[in-house]
């Protein structure tokens, strides 16, 4: 086994761990409220979005998966100090699964599209579209049908329920895009 393989493998693992820890740490921060929006915003999915946008599809998805596994195993890592198997079986379990898909989609779009776009405005728009597709589209895609299936509510009501979180999620998507593009500019080669 050549040294370079094991070196990059170890580095990948450490990157996955640090972003998993970031997702977890952001769940411990108190939720913020933006003036007009009635629903408090938890910062946890900001970490999920950042993991994808900075680490790429596989490592980003792994970072989300690590948090989900640790939370299901019993650590109170989810926003509000939740954890344990009950979280997955409850009505909002799908959103948790959606994190993995969400960071994967964001990572793939960043790696193969956003980072190749030239022009600052065009790159920002491509980034925002990607984070929205994965961090909102991907997460809701798992969360909304899950809630509908588990509770017996119809699909529309379930979708309407998640709409309350949309303004906060859009805010996080903008922050993620700006942060990710800034960091990629100063920290090149994150997604080789």
């Amino acid at each position: 086994m050549s040294l370079s393989t094991s070196t990059s493998q170890t580095k990948n693992t450490v990157y996955i761990a640090i972003f998993a820890a970031m997702i977890a740490a952001m769940g411990l921060l108190p939720p913020i409220t933006l003036g007009i929006i009635p629903v408090p915003i938890t910062l946890q999915t900001l970490g999920v979005m950042l993991a994808g946008a900075l680490l790429g599809p596989w490592r980003g998805a792994m970072a989300s998966l690590v948090v989900v596994v640790l939370a299901l195993a019993g650590l109170p890592l989810l926003a509000g100090g939740r954890g344990g198997l009950g979280v997955l079986l409850g009505p909002t379990g799908g959103y948790l699964v959606g994190w993995i898909l969400g960071s994967f989609i964001i990572g793939a779009l960043f790696k193969y599209w956003v980072l190749r776009v030239t022009g600052k405005t065009a790159q920002f728009l491509a980034g925002l579209a990607s984070v929205t597709a994965g961090g909102i589209g991907g997460i809701y895609l798992c969360g909304v049908p899950w809630t509908a299936m588990v509770t017996g509510l119809d699909f529309g009501t379930s979708l309407l329920g998640s709409a309350a979180f949309l303004p906060g999620d859009l805010f996080k998507a903008v922050v993620t895009t700006l942060v990710a593009l800034t960091v990629h500019r100063s920290y090149r080669g994150l997604m080789k």
Binding site: T10, T13, V14, A17, A20, A21, V66
Partner: peptide
């Protein structure tokens, strides 16, 4: 195993 234990340590 390394990723899981390091995550807990990094938090």
């Amino acid at each position: 195993a390394l990723a899981l234990s390091m995550t807990i340590r990094f938090i």
